[in-house]
């Protein structure tokens, strides 16, 4: 490896880190504002002057100042390490998602499987947090999270498999290249399944049973304070960014649009932002699902739908090949 190669690797890694630190904050601020307007209120208005744009920066400063408490009965090593396990997978996943054919940190040949595999590791952070806290609410939250993630992993993988089958490749860049507007109809059931499972994987309302505050305080994160708690929050918003961009690349053609040669990355970001707003919108629009309703939805609606989509895609690909 020459010096120029090493420099390129460093520049790419720094770019991913910068995106990882900026985009989740952007989504968080959007959530503040979108939720506020949907509920007929203002939201944060003071920090930073213009419409409270610096609220999340102020929140970050607050989190840094808070005392970092580890409960006396906790398993200390696992308790302290859990936030990193929850956060790092999304950072790694962000590295392989292409914004345009040129703007991608690491163009992995099996990018779609890579993102799925890496985000599946993140759940371990929640499980470790819930178990190591030595708190029954944390343990209940972690168990709900595990049950939910195992159930929704399956329809999500099936939905992504359908897209890969349609494109004939596992590479995210290849999938976006193969995309055509006709997919909007053809892959629509798969797209719906993917979006619902993505929201469930992120444990966002209406799938927030694992952190249901009125029942189990804050689930696996109950005992966390300060920066470690902030890392869990950051991983949720980073998750929204990853899932929105992934949805864009898989189902909306990524950078395809007018002037895609010059403005390709802008299209991906814009489409991804719209999906992120939809994810926020879901939180405002629906009440929380009960645990049994949640499992029923996954196994009786999403899995059959995803299997039907997979069969449809397979038949069509074979017939037109």
């Amino acid at each position: 490896m020459t010096g120029a190669d090493a420099l390129e690797v460093v520049v790419r890694a720094v770019a991913v880190l910068a995106a990882f630190l900026v985009l989740p904050l952007l989504v968080g601020q959007t959530e503040h504002k979108v939720m506020a307007h949907m509920q007929g209120r203002l939201g944060p208005m003071y920090a930073g002057g213009f419409h409270g744009w610096a609220q999340l920066v102020a929140d970050g400063v607050k989190f840094v100042q808070k005392e970092d408490i580890t409960p006396a009965a906790a398993d200390k090593g696992v308790f302290r390490f859990a936030p990193a396990v929850a956060l790092v997978p999304y950072l790694v996943a962000m590295a392989v998602i292409p914004l345009s054919p040129d703007v991608v940190a690491a163009d992995a040949p099996a990018g779609a499987v890579f993102v799925l595999a890496v985000t599946a590791v993140g759940i371990l952070g929640t499980l470790m947090a819930g178990w190591a806290s030595a708190n029954k609410y944390s343990l209940l939250g972690a168990m709900r999270a595990a049950a939910q993630l195992l159930s929704y992993e399956l329809p999500m993988v099936l939905a992504v498999a359908s897209v890969c089958l349609a494109a004939g490749t596992l590479s995210l860049t290849g999938i976006a290249h193969a995309w055509s507007p006709w997919w909007l109809l053809w892959q629509l059931p798969g797209a719906v399944v993917f979006l619902v499972s993505a929201v469930a994987e992120l444990q966002r309302p209406p799938f927030d049973m694992p952190v249901a505050d009125s029942e189990i305080v804050f689930g696996a994160y109950t005992e966390y304070t300060g920066l470690r708690f902030a890392f869990f929050l950051l991983s949720e918003y980073a998750g929204i960014v990853v899932m929105s961009l992934l949805f864009t690349v898989l189902y909306l053609g990524g950078w395809q649009g007018p002037l895609s040669d010059q403005l390709g990355w802008l299209w991906t970001v814009l489409k991804g932002f719209c999906i992120a707003v939809v994810v926020i919108w879901l939180r405002v629009a629906w009440p929380r699902l009960r645990e049994d309703q949640l499992q029923r939805l996954a196994w009786l609606v999403l899995v059959p739908l995803a299997l039907a989509q997979l069969a449809l895609t397979g038949v069509w690909v074979v017939l037109t090949a």
Binding site: L116, V118, A120, L127, W131, L139, M143, A147, L150, V157
Partner: peptide, 28 residues
């Protein structure tokens, strides 16, 4: 390698941990 991570780390071990949590899963 990716399927190993997806299936074993993402699903099998999560299931093992889930089953452990259904027992007393003592700390220490």
């Amino acid at each position: 390698a990716l399927v190993q991570v997806l299936v074993y780390v993402g699903a099998v071990v999560v299931l093992v941990l889930f089953a452990l949590m259904l027992t007393r899963a003592p700390i220490g």
